[in-house]
């Protein structure tokens, strides 16, 4: 079995999982959102990687070109990037609101305050 063609996917999976690790393990809420962003960009990379055709060019039609990369993942990811920014801004708004209510953006301190109350 030929594995060299899959190596790109493996690096991207590693990037994805470091994003997941940041979301789970870091206590700071801003850093959690940064982790979500890392995860997101890695998923986008996975899709774009699948759309690449060897020897192809960008899918903009021209007379003397016959091989194009796949435009469909590009369209899906264009939509996903914008939706991703929308969710990021919503998450950051929640972080600002939590900071107003608790005076901290550290996960464990917030839980402590909740337990005390």
């Amino acid at each position: 079995m030929e594995f060299s063609g899959l190596f790109v996917y493996w690096i991207i999976v590693a990037l994805m999982m470091s994003g997941l690790y940041i979301v789970i393990a870091q206590n700071n809420l801003v850093k959690k959102i940064v982790g979500l962003n890392v995860f997101q960009v890695s998923v986008f990379l996975l899709y774009i990687t699948m759309g690449k055709v060897t020897g192809g060019t960008a899918p903009i039609l021209a007379d003397n070109i016959t091989v194009y990369s796949n435009p469909l993942p590009h369209v899906l990811i264009l939509t996903a990037i914008v939706v991703g920014v929308a969710t990021t801004s919503l998450g950051l708004a929640l972080v600002v609101r939590i900071h107003e209510a608790y005076g901290t953006i550290e996960d464990d301190e917030i839980l402590e305050q909740d337990d005390d109350a």
């Binding site: 055709v53 903009i60 990369s69 590009h74 264009l78 990037i81 914008v82």
Partner: peptide, 13 residues
Amino acid sequence: MDAVDVAFTEAAV
């Protein structure tokens, strides 16, 4: 990887 439109959007947004 030939996804120029996506690159624009990612760099800007």
